[in-house]
């Protein structure tokens, strides 16, 4: 069953069209990896799916009653966070907020959920640590734990492995794969094509427009896939 469908999508960034006439769909339980060169519109597409950006033309539709409040999102690091006084517990717990309408405080379930996600990502012992003093890998884990608190059905990851060493990248790949096996739908933007081939179920290769959309095994046979892998 389709969870998200994009039809004839055209997106622009700073007035330049980066994606035109893109159509694809994501099914429940899929693990879609969006790959492509810098400036090919990967992050812009992710922002459009999150409704942070409105499409110039075309549409993105959620099905099966998927609501924005059920999406978890791991953004690229932003500037403001670097000197922000907040501890790990506060950051992770804030991921639970999207399910609250008016209630001002966190419930017992929220706290349990936050704690479970922190244990899953092996950061439970960092709960009282200051977020800005953590290493890049630890920060990524914290933000992923927050995304997991928010993600009821769909998880969007924007370059989760950028700037991380191979060991942590490998660990995080394992965690994301595990989540996918547990039933979460994953959409990930990544530069790491070999990782994507190894773990994802679908690939969307962008290059000023869609180059390829389909399953991994088909991608390996396709000309963009072979060319891109040859370069990498």
């Amino acid at each position: 069953m389709a969870l998200i469908t994009c039809r004839d999508l055209t997106l622009s960034y700073d007035g330049n069209v980066v994606i035109s006439q893109l159509s694809f769909q994501v099914n429940s339980g899929d693990y879609l990896c969006i790959v492509g060169e810098n400036g090919s519109g990967k992050s812009t597409l992710l922002k459009a799916i999150l409704s942070l950006k409105s499409p110039d033309r075309g549409e993105i539709r959620f099905h099966e009653g998927l609501k924005q409040e059920e999406i978890g999102y791991l953004p690229q690091q932003t500037e403001a966070q670097k000197d922000f006084p907040a501890n790990v517990w506060e950051v992770v717990l804030s991921g639970c907020l999207n399910s609250k309408r008016l209630c001002p405080c966190y419930s017992k379930e929220d706290r349990a959920r936050a704690r479970a996600n922190m244990e899953k990502l092996e950061i439970a012992d960092l709960a009282r640590a200051c977020f800005r003093e953590l290493s890049g890998g630890q920060q990524r884990r914290v933000l992923l734990a927050r995304a997991l608190c928010a993600a009821k059905r769909l998880l969007l990851l924007d370059e989760p492995f950028a700037g991380l060493d191979p060991v942590i990248t490998h660990d995080l790949h394992g965690i994301v794969k595990e989540l996918n096996d547990e039933g979460s739908t994953i959409i990930m933007v990544s530069h790491d094509l070999s990782g994507a081939i190894a773990h994802a179920s679908h690939i969307l290769h962008l290059q000023k427009g869609p180059l390829f959309f389909g399953t991994v095994s088909d991608y390996l046979q396709s000309s963009p896939g072979m060319r891109f892998l040859g370069e990498a």
Binding site: L50, L52, Q68, Y73, P75, Q81, S94, L97, L156
Partner: peptide, 13 residues
């Protein structure tokens, strides 16, 4: 949430 990460807050509704 809005102060810490506006983008995430907006993205999650």
């Amino acid at each position: 949430a809005v102060t810490f990460d506006e983008c995430f807050a907006r993205a999650t509704g």
